[in-house]
Amino acid sequence: MDKEERSGQISNLSPGDGITLTCITCPVGCELEVTLEGEGEVRVLNNRCPRGVDYAVQETTAPERTFTSTVKLRGSSLERRLPVRLDRVIAKARLLEVAEYVRTLEAQVPVTMGDVLQDDLLKLGANLVASRSVKE
């Protein structure tokens, strides 16, 4: 399957490793050829503007992502689930662990959008907040 694209966890790269990244800074979507040269230093090819380099550095040194999920909602006659989010980005490498933990949580009505359901979730420095209001 020659068209197969496969790229693993970027944070597992060691010096000398190369990887292709799609820059997500703007819709051009440059296919960046990134090579890790040493601790926190990268060589970037195929970028059409300097923002590609910034993205590649961020992405190869400390990639971060937003996190959202749902939790079981108790006491509502209308809704079975409450959508939730973390109020700041977290390390990409922790997403699966966070997801597994959040699946075990529950919320109770009434709840208002922005309510903090758990602060400093798993000591990541981000709070889990309700992403909508459910009154009854």
Partner: peptide, 16 residues
Amino acid sequence: SRNVQQCLRDYAIPLY
């Protein structure tokens, strides 16, 4: 493209 990156590549899901 950003969704290809953050939804597939982030989790090593192959795109054929």
